[in-house]
Amino acid sequence: MILTDIRTLHYSKNYIEYEVNKQNIFTKWFNYAQLRDFTGYFIKEWINGVFKNWVIFTSPSGYAGTNNPIESFNAQFKKQFTKFSPRSLIDCVKLICDDVIPVYSESTREFKFTREPNVKVKNLAKKLDDKLFFISSNDPNLVYYYGLSSISTIDIFNKTCSCRWFMAYSTCAHLYKAFQLFYVQTASSKFVIRARRGPKKNGESKIETNEGLTKD
């Protein structure tokens, strides 16, 4: 229950929704005697403390709200370079200069400033009903998805969506699906999703590409 409630707070889309969720959740928590100390701690540290900007509407879409990327890099550093053995500060500096910097400076991996849809996003998009997507009659770049509890507005031109998932991760299944259904070539975007043309080879299925699709 606690994890579900914290997740609900985290995915609040705006300040008003956040305040309503907060009031309902803390009222429920205080009804449990064993949660009162924890509720006081949570309010002090995570609502009124210095770490209060962890809700998705307080930061840009896709902005990292934790230090997980740093911890992931540290894990790779220990696994590949130090082999999990303790090192002195001088040894670490020498290791970084002699081994780490040459490896990463010669890497051909491109640094991307935008986020691309992953496998999870694409799988979720397959489950979305095509009939729930409607293109705007006034603007061909606007698409509306009518979900069970809310309506998501998708901007194909700017590659954005109003859903919670996009606010948190800067990519979503609604946006990916909208490109598949209503993609329109614009000056600001490259070709995004298209089926391969021409006859199929034996054993080959239709292939989709996602070049340029950025921020499920």
Rank of each mutant, 00 (worst) to 15 (best):
T4P: 04
I6Q: 10
R7Y: 09
L9M: 03
Y11H: 15
Y11P: 01
Y11T: 12
N14W: 09
Y18E: 04
V20G: 05
K22C: 13
K22D: 05
Q23A: 14
T27A: 14
W29V: 04
F30A: 09
L35K: 03
L35N: 08
R36Q: 15
D37Y: 08
F38L: 13
F38M: 06
G40Y: 13
F42W: 00
W46F: 15
G49I: 10
K52L: 00
V55G: 01
F57Q: 06
P60Y: 07
Y63S: 11
Y63M: 12
E71K: 14
S72N: 14
K78M: 10
K79R: 14
Q80T: 08
Q80P: 02
Q80L: 15
Q80E: 07
F84H: 12
P86D: 05
P86G: 03
R87K: 11
R87N: 09
L89A: 09
D91N: 14
C97S: 01
D98C: 09
V103D: 05
V103S: 08
V103Y: 11
F111Q: 09
K112N: 10
R115K: 08
E116I: 10
N118W: 01
V119R: 13
K120M: 05
V121H: 01
K126H: 10
D129V: 07
L132C: 03
F133T: 02
I135N: 05
I135A: 03
S137R: 11
V143R: 00
V143F: 02
Y145A: 01
G147S: 11
L148S: 00
L148Y: 06
S150C: 05
I154K: 00
I154S: 00
T160C: 03
C161P: 00
C163K: 05
R164I: 05
W165M: 03
A168G: 11
A168I: 13
Y169S: 08
T171G: 06
L175W: 01
Y176Q: 02
K177E: 02
A178F: 03
F179H: 01
L181F: 04
Y183F: 09
Q185V: 12
Q185S: 14
Q185E: 14
A187Y: 08
A187Q: 11
S188Q: 12
F191G: 13
F191H: 12
V192Y: 04
I193E: 05
R197N: 11
K200P: 09
K200C: 03
E204F: 10
E208Q: 10
T209G: 15
E211G: 14
E211Q: 11
K215S: 10
D216Q: 03
